[in-house]
């Protein structure tokens, strides 16, 4: 196993952990954190594949895509946090309604 493959698999592990958190936790702030971990996992897979099989020069195209992705992720996080605060001020709790409790 090479370092790049190791990091690609790490990215997949992060993706799975993030997806788990996204489904498992009700609090919207935790969902936002989980979504960011998922995104980090995707970025890691993309960048690790850019490194793989190249001798010395990593592929700059995926790296540029990851930079774009990081900025978009922050913009989306900022928007999501404002939406969360909006839900909290409307319902008194930063959670989506649980269908089982109704």
């Amino acid at each position: 196993m090479t370092g790049a493959e190791l990091y690609a698999l790490t990215g997949i592990a992060l993706f799975v952990i993030g997806l788990h958190g996204l489904i498992r936790y009700a609090h919207l702030m935790r969902k936002i954190l989980a979504l960011n971990v998922t995104g980090a996992g995707v970025f890691l897979v993309v960048a690790a594949l850019a490194e793989r099989g190249q001798d010395g020069t990593p592929d700059p195209v995926p790296q540029a895509l990851v930079i774009t992705g990081i900025v978009v992720a922050v913009a989306a996080t900022g928007l999501a946090l404002v939406l969360m605060l909006r839900v909290a001020s409307a319902t008194g709790r930063a959670e989506l309604p649980d269908p089982r409790s109704e």
Binding site: G3, A4, Y7, F43, A47, A48, A50, E51, P58, Q63, A64, V66, I67, I70
Partner: peptide
């Protein structure tokens, strides 16, 4: 940095 992506 380990993935030689200092920009990222």
């Amino acid at each position: 940095v380990r993935l030689s992506a200092p920009d990222v």
